[in-house]
Design a protein around this nucleic acid. Structure first.
Lengths: 192, 192, 192, 192
DNA sequence: AATGAATGAGGGTTCATTCAT
DNA sequence: TATGAATGAACCCTCATTCAT
């Protein structure tokens, strides 16, 4: 089920996926009906089930899609960082920008906690792994304390997510670079 | 509407509210039916609507209740703190304990983002205000940087919430005091 | 059940009956709840059942009340009539005035066809009997054809009711005396 | 919304509409459940909402249907009339026959006053227009008084409807031609 | 006689999913 | 592959009526 064999099928599946992301972002999972999705995608209701076995399935696919997008939006910025702390600052800045540009859509990841907990864990789990990897590399280079671990990684992630919610979604009354700089001051002093 | 005029009414309302908290915590808002609530509360279906105008209404009432409970669980602990940083450590520790003891129930506050956004904002908004108040008092006493502000408060809140999710709900593989101590190390260095 | 023994009870019953008439007239039978009635009557919900066994019961009582009111509104006017045809003119005129003054309330009698068909039949049945009685008396006096009968009586009643609906309820764009005069012209020529 | 795109859909919609007319006629609007309608139509409950947005919607559609049926039942009879007065006689006779053959169903139009007042007005409004048109044509031909107008048209309509109720629905104890003839005598004398 | 809490059958509507074409 | 009609379990909420005080 699902992987299209023809080019036409590929396009249809993509249209449904994109439409689903828009609708879930705008109304949330429960308020979105399959017909909302197919209408926006300009396909017939029945076509939905050619590509997805259930409503939760598209949701999961959308979450995976988004999760990857966040990652690939942030990754190149980190690459330019001078050191580990700068990397965290740029990561947060990139994240704030992404969230601000995808406000509605970003809610999807949060909602997944209640719709598809496995997707939610997997998204945040792998995010934390990336942060942890960076922290340990920085520790190896002597830029931060040697004993940084999972707790620090989760703390950073929580900071980032809530700053994204407050300054990216609720009210964009502060510049993302400024917010990231302030948050980074905490880490500079706190992780060394 | 709904304020009981007799003692009996007061008891019934309370029974419904408690049952609702249990059910929402266990199944989530959407999967919980009014009948699940009234069955657990041992009252007739119709009695629900004597006290609440709609399913969303109990949900809001439950969130407000919980929000107050978290606050009053944490407050006395903070009172014993030697200084501002210790206060944050004890706050986090208290929060982690509360979350661990009310695992299922705590999800309700997060779900409110999608069910009753106003409740969600009001809960986190007032939490942040409390943190900010403590930080400023600490700044006045010279315990932390003079320019601490909203960004720091949101960062702390995010840390706490995610640490609560990870170490209070997902897996209680670490002692709350230990987690709180590690997190506090970040603030000790980071806020001074 | 129902007949109050005390003066206080008599007043309560009356308050409920009047409130019911208002509410049924404004919202119709089905859209009116017992609580709407008791609220308007300023009595407790339970008191309703002290005086009426069921919702349909008050409805019937209200219809009977109204039916009597229409009759006693029209009767004195007829008494002044010079002859049988003038009597019908005055009856229609009085009816149009009554309907115009009690627009909403009058609908109740029509709705009774679907709520309490027996009340409906009894109301229109007795109206027709009165008309028929007048016609026969007029026939005896040689004012109208000798063979007037039930068909004529029903025809007159239908005229009256529809003229009341159109010129009393829908739109009061014509004077009741004028409408009655025009209608009476039909009878003058038609019944002789 | 609801217009079927296939032949099968057209048949289903029709089946629901017919079943609704039967049920509404037999039990009235409020006592009829959607399931009564779909059961009689032999379709699934959900199919109802494929074609009608709400219970009131079918009701309106049924009224419109019936309104048209009455008209097309009466129209051909009128065509054969020798003059204006004969036309009214034949119209009434045709109407009485239709009502007698569709007793239960005809109540639907009356009930519409309380369920869908707009449908009610539109039905009786257009009936009156037809009567008025005929009267004026007759006046032009010198068959009736030159100044016949709306009041006369409403009076005729009221006569017809109540005679239909009494001699078509309540009790068919008189021949429709006979009743129509008696009523027509009133008009013959009354309108000239 | 009056009060208001308690009851639960019933009703309209939604919507994910299936199926025939 | 695509289409859209068909299905029916599920759910929220209303409200007439009963009952304990």
């Amino acid at each position: 089920m699902g992987q299209p064999r023809t080019e036409r099928g590929r396009r249809t599946r993509r249209a449904i996926l994109d439409a689903a992301a828009q609708e879930f972002g705008a109304r949330g999972f429960h308020a979105t009906g399959i017909t909302d999705i197919t209408r926006r995608a300009s396909v017939a209701l029945g076509s939905f089930y050619t590509y997805f076995a259930a409503k939760e399935d598209v949701f999961r696919a959308v979450v995976a899609d988004l999760s990857a997008q966040v990652g690939s939006h942030v990754a190149p910025r980190i690459a330019e960082a001078a050191d580990g702390l700068a990397a965290e600052r740029l990561a947060l800045e990139g994240f704030l920008d992404f969230v601000a540009d995808n406000q509605l859509i970003y809610r999807i990841i949060d909602e997944s906690e209640f719709v598809a907990p496995d997707s939610h864990r997997s998204h945040y789990g792998s995010s934390v792994q990336r942060i942890l990897g960076r922290l340990r590399a920085a520790a190896d280079r002597g830029e931060v304390r040697a004993d940084v671990g999972e707790v620090e990684a989760w703390a950073i992630m929580g900071m980032n997510v809530f700053l994204g919610m407050r300054f990216g979604v609720w009210d964009k009354d502060r510049d993302s670079a400024e917010v990231a700089a302030i948050a980074n001051r905490i880490l500079s002093g706190g992780l060394r």
